[in-house]
Amino acid sequence: MADQLTEEQIAEFKEAFSLFDKDGDGTITTKELGTVMRSLGQNPTEAELQDMINEVDADGNGTIDFPEFLTMMARKMKDTDSEEEIREAFRVFDKDGNGYISAAELRHVMTNLGEKLTDEEVDEMIREADIDGDGQVNYEEFVQMMTAK
């Protein structure tokens, strides 16, 4: 299944994987998964984290390695993001709930994920998604960005 991913997608997933893999040992533990999910405003229980890991832990060693992570991402993409997942993601970014993602809100979430971005990089990300040019990202623009192939 992971063989249907483009090189660009694999590179993006590698970057995402390293955000989860806090200690850089090449595997994601339940603790690391929990840290990232909490930084995104989720509050999973230990059991939920274990279930999430077990779902993709092909070799049964209790952690997720990069090939397992790729399989999980490929699977998720095949079920292409349901509207509800996209709306949920939008809410994570839209901290003040005004229906727009500002540069400050984007920077806040990315920083929580451990991504240190310059102001230019954040502005560039907003510009790429900002179709109507108002300097922020509304829900429609967010959907376009998330579903762009």
Rank of each mutant, 00 (worst) to 15 (best):
F20H: 05
A74V: 11
A47H: 10
M110N: 03
D94K: 01
T80F: 04
L106V: 02
A16D: 05
G97T: 10
M52G: 14
V143R: 15
I28M: 14
I131G: 06
V137I: 12
E55Y: 07
G62H: 14
F20Y: 14
A89F: 15
N138Y: 14
I101M: 02
T35W: 11
E121H: 05
K149D: 05
Y139V: 02
L70K: 13
F20Q: 10
I28Y: 10
R127V: 06
E7W: 15
K76R: 12
M52N: 14
S102I: 06
D123H: 04
E55P: 15
A74H: 07
G114F: 03
N54M: 09
N54F: 04
L5K: 10
E140N: 10
M125P: 02
T111P: 07
I53Q: 05
M146A: 07
E68L: 00
G26R: 15
M73E: 08
E88V: 10
E88L: 02
F13M: 00
A104G: 12
M72I: 11
F13A: 06
T27P: 09
K95D: 02
N54G: 03
T6P: 13
T147I: 13
R38K: 11
R107I: 02
N138F: 14
L19P: 10
V56Q: 13
Y100F: 08
Y139Q: 01
F142P: 06
M72T: 13
L40R: 07
Q9T: 12
E15A: 07
Q9M: 01
A103F: 02
D3A: 06
N43I: 13
E115I: 01
E84P: 04
L106Q: 04
T6E: 08
I10S: 11
K31P: 01
M37F: 00
M52T: 12
A47M: 15
E46I: 14
K14M: 06
D79N: 10
I131E: 00
K78A: 04
D21S: 10
T29N: 01
Q144S: 14
K76Q: 02
D132K: 07
I53D: 06
D79R: 11
E68Y: 05
F13D: 15
G26T: 05
S18V: 08
I131N: 14
E85F: 02
K95G: 04
E15N: 02
E115D: 10
Q42M: 02
E84L: 08
E120K: 08
E120F: 14
L33C: 00
Q144Y: 08
F90W: 15
T30W: 00
D25F: 15
D25A: 14
A104E: 01
G26V: 10
S18G: 02
D65P: 14
V36R: 01
H108E: 15
D132H: 01
G133A: 09
E46G: 12
M145K: 08
D3E: 12
L113V: 05
A104S: 10
E120G: 12
L19V: 14
M146T: 11
R38C: 08
D57T: 08
E85N: 10
P67N: 02
G97N: 09
L106F: 08
A148L: 05
T29F: 06
G26I: 15
G60D: 14
L5S: 14
N112D: 14
N112K: 07
I101N: 01
E12R: 03
E12A: 15
A47P: 07
K14Y: 03
T30L: 07
N54L: 00
F66G: 01
D23G: 13
F13E: 06
D3Q: 15
G135W: 03
Q42F: 10
M37G: 00
E120H: 14
Q144F: 03
G135F: 01
E115V: 10
T27N: 13
E32S: 15
V36F: 13
M72G: 00
E7A: 06
G26S: 10
N98A: 10
D21G: 11
D65W: 12
K76M: 03
E140G: 11
F66A: 14
D119N: 11
E48M: 14
M52D: 15
T71Y: 02
T63K: 08
E46W: 08
L40N: 15
D3N: 09
Y100C: 10
D3T: 03
D51T: 06
G34E: 11
D25Y: 01
L40E: 02
M77E: 04
N43K: 10
K14Q: 08
K78C: 13
E83H: 13
A16C: 03
E140A: 11
S18I: 02
D119S: 14
E115N: 07
D23V: 12
Q4H: 06
D81E: 15
K116M: 07
A2K: 04
E12Y: 02
D119T: 15
D96H: 05
M110W: 03
S39N: 06
E46M: 15
D51E: 09
Q4P: 14
V109P: 06
E85W: 00
T63M: 03
M145L: 06
D79Q: 07
T45G: 04
F20P: 04
D123Y: 11
E124D: 07
M110R: 02
N61T: 03
T6Y: 04
I86N: 08
E55R: 14
S18T: 10
E121G: 10
L5P: 11
H108F: 14
D65K: 07
R75A: 10
K116E: 11
E15S: 14
T80P: 12
K116T: 13
D134Q: 08
N43V: 07
E128M: 15
R87T: 06
Q9F: 15
L40S: 09
L49F: 11
L5D: 05
E115Q: 07
Q136R: 13
P44L: 12
M77P: 08
D96R: 02
E105L: 07
S39P: 12
R107S: 03
F90G: 08
D130V: 11
